[in-house]
Design a protein around this nucleic acid. Structure first.
Length: 598
DNA sequence: GATGCCTGCCC
DNA sequence: ATTCTGC
DNA sequence: GCAGAATGGGCAGGCATC
């Protein structure tokens, strides 16, 4: 397959929109299947800009690569002058470059890349460079590549059997195959992910206790359990594995249909320094299939509710030029808090999300007039954070975060901590510009430290929960049956948990809260977005004070934390309830909640 | 050998 | 991770 | 609602550089 053909396909895809992108790639794959099916693997990998799974360990793939490598080598001999590149040549070369390591690795890689580039013609170079940069940005990613593959396989199959189908019937067949491809993709272990991560000194004696918390079983004795409901998967997990104190546990969970119970379990989780809960249906839509997963797994964290959570007002010290769709505006900013005693601005975090396109355009305009040549003495930040543009202290952003942590790079409150370490934010996002604040009205270093400390305290004490109120909404499931309650408790520790799991796939599926975020913040109408149908939900939650639910996909661990909200003043209201839901399907069911914790 | 920058990965 | 946006 | 594409802190490992 000529590389040029591939590059041209990418170019077309870039300009098309919606499903047409998939159709275009599907046609390309169909052609590949027709003329050089042996190149399909490489084409698929290149479409997702990956070199494939850990080829060293995957014999099947390795075999393919061997063939590819051979072909490529043969071609190269006769390739005295620029000869048209082919998919195998390029793919093989990329793999080769990826494997180069050791001394002089960079130099060698560069020279190999130069060689590849000099063989490019026309648009080939453009896409080759993007591939090398890791950003294809053609608006088509993994999911679409899988769809295209499904389409191509459908057509190939039909051609093979000489059948002719079209219209709705054909579409239906495609859908079926797309689903098969995606399912296979989900069920097929990725050796790269499963392989043990390299750790030079993975000892356990560095004072940090590490434990594994199991919460699901996707394969057992060679059989995929992905299609089994969570209740069964969990039962197999619990009956076939044994807990080992100090290192191997089952995630703490509670089975319930009662939101109050969920809330109190959530409080307990927070107390134990967990980030929150993963709420899943036990029986209904409780399998691990991709298309439904998003509807039956919800993540519940304290910072998802508008008006609640840590909020800070920080000064924009500098900015970084934007890439891709942010070309021409800033892609992110360096923010700092103000230390009145030293009259310095200390970096707290960079920020790059939460902005609408309009926000970015407006900010770029505002900041042009605040640009200054170099960072003033009163700007404290690590050299590695040096912004492309630096501004006089002026603009103030209201930022929300999930946590406040000690940082190895940021300077906030570094003069106030015992060890001199600074403070930073975890998962910072932009909420809005604080027009009503001057730079020196920003959150102070002391306040930042205070927020950090109160988190610690909070996490270590018992929270009285409670609430009161209820809201209406209900949750619950109706159908599905029985309830039992069960729970295990283990609490323990804390260390960071880690986990990694879910080797099966990585996808993301957010349920975002409604887009009402900023508005809600301003208008405080937390419920507004929620009403969504509460019909069939998987689970709906709300609480009286904090908590909301978001959806997510892979559960995992968490880290610390707790709640609290302070802010330099913004109005946080706390109100109410919240409910989120997942999607309408019809039946409700009982849910199981795992504490995502470490 | 120590230090710094970059990459890949986890959230 | 979080968030926004086009489809 | 999905999929894609912007972007965060932090860690560990690997390579470059002093």
């Amino acid at each position: 397959v000529p590389f040029k053909e591939f590059a041209q396909t990418l170019e077309k895809i870039e300009d098309l929109s919606g499903k047409k992108k998939i159709d275009e790639l599907g046609q390309f794959f169909t052609k590949v299947l027709d003329f050089s099916p042996e190149d399909l693997t490489a084409c698929v990998y290149m479409s997702v800009n990956q070199l494939g799974p850990s080829y060293e360990e995957d014999l099947r793939i390795k075999g393919d690569l061997g063939t590819v490598a051979q072909q490529s080598r043969q071609n190269q001999k006769t390739l005295i002058q620029p000869k048209p590149l082919t998919i195998p040549i390029v793919f093989n070369k990329l793999v080769k470059i990826a494997k180069i390591n050791g001394k002089e690795a960079t130099t060698t890689k560069i020279s190999e890349i130069k060689g590849l580039l000099s063989s490019c013609q026309g648009i080939e170079a453009r896409f080759l460079v993007r591939m090398l940069a890791g950003k294809m940005r053609i608006g088509l990613g993994e999911q679409s590549v899988l769809s295209a593959l499904g389409h191509a396989l459908t057509l190939a199959k039909l051609a093979e059997t000489n059948k002719k189908v079209s219209g709705d019937k054909l579409d239906a067949m495609k859908d079926t195959n797309v689903k098969r491809v995606k399912t296979a993709y989900c069920e097929c272990p990725n050796y790269d992910l499963l392989s043990t991560r390299k750790r030079k000194n993975a000892t356990d004696d560095n004072g940090v206790k590490v434990g594994v918390f199991l919460f699901d079983l996707l394969y057992f004795n060679g059989k995929p359990l992905v299609r089994e409901p969570l209740r069964k998967r969990r039962e197999l997990l619990r009956s076939n594995f044994k807990k080992i104190d100090g290192s191997f546990y089952f995630a703490t969970s509670v089975d319930t249909m009662d939101t109050d119970e969920i809330n109190s379990f959530f409080d307990e989780a927070i107390q134990n320094k967990c980030e929150g809960l993963m709420i899943k249906t036990l029986d209904t839509e409780a399998t691990y299939e991709i298309s439904r997963r998003s509807k039956s797994w919800l993540k519940m964290k304290k910072d998802y509710v508008d008006g609640i959570g840590d909020t800070l007002d920080l000064v924009v010290m500098g900015a970084y030029v934007g890439n891709g769709k942010r070309t021409g505006v800033y892609g992110g900013y360096l923010l700092g808090c103000y230390n009145p005693s030293t009259e310095e601005y200390e970096s707290v975090c960079k920020i790059g999300t939460g902005f609408s396109d309009e926000d970015l355009a407006e900010q770029f305009k505002i900041l042009q007039e605040k640009k200054i040549e170099k960072a003033p003495m009163y700007y404290q930040f690590d050299p590695t954070l040096k912004p492309d543009d630096i501004f006089a202290p002026h603009l103030v952003f209201e930022i929300k975060c999930a946590d406040i942590t000690i940082s190895p790079r940021h300077k906030a409150a570094s003069g106030l901590t015992e060890d001199g370490k600074g403070i930073s934010l975890r998962f910072p996002r932009f909420l809005r510009i604080r027009d009503d604040k001057n730079a020196d009205d920003a959150t102070s270093s002391e306040q930042v430290l205070e927020m950090y400390r109160s988190q610690e305290i909070f996490a270590n004490q018992k929270i009285e929960a409670d609430d009161g109120e209820e809201d209406d909404d209900d949750v619950v499931g109706e159908d599905e049956e029985k309830d039992e309650e069960e729970e295990d408790l283990n609490k323990t520790n804390a260390s960071e948990g880690s986990s990694k799991e879910n080797p099966v796939e990585k996808k993301k599926s957010p349920v975002k809260q409604s887009p009402a975020k900023k508005d809600a913040e301003k208008s405080k109408s937390p419920l507004k977005s929620t009403p969504v149908e509460k019909k069939k939900t998987v689970a709906s939650i709300f609480s009286s004070t904090k908590k909301s639910v978001k959806k997510e996909e892979s559960p995992i661990k968490k880290k610390k934390k707790n709640e609290f909200s302070s802010d330099s003043d913004s109005e946080d209201s706390e109100d109410d309830a919240f409910a989120k839901k997942a999607q309408p399907k019809k039946k409700r069911s009982r849910v199981a909640i795992d504490s995502d914790s470490e």
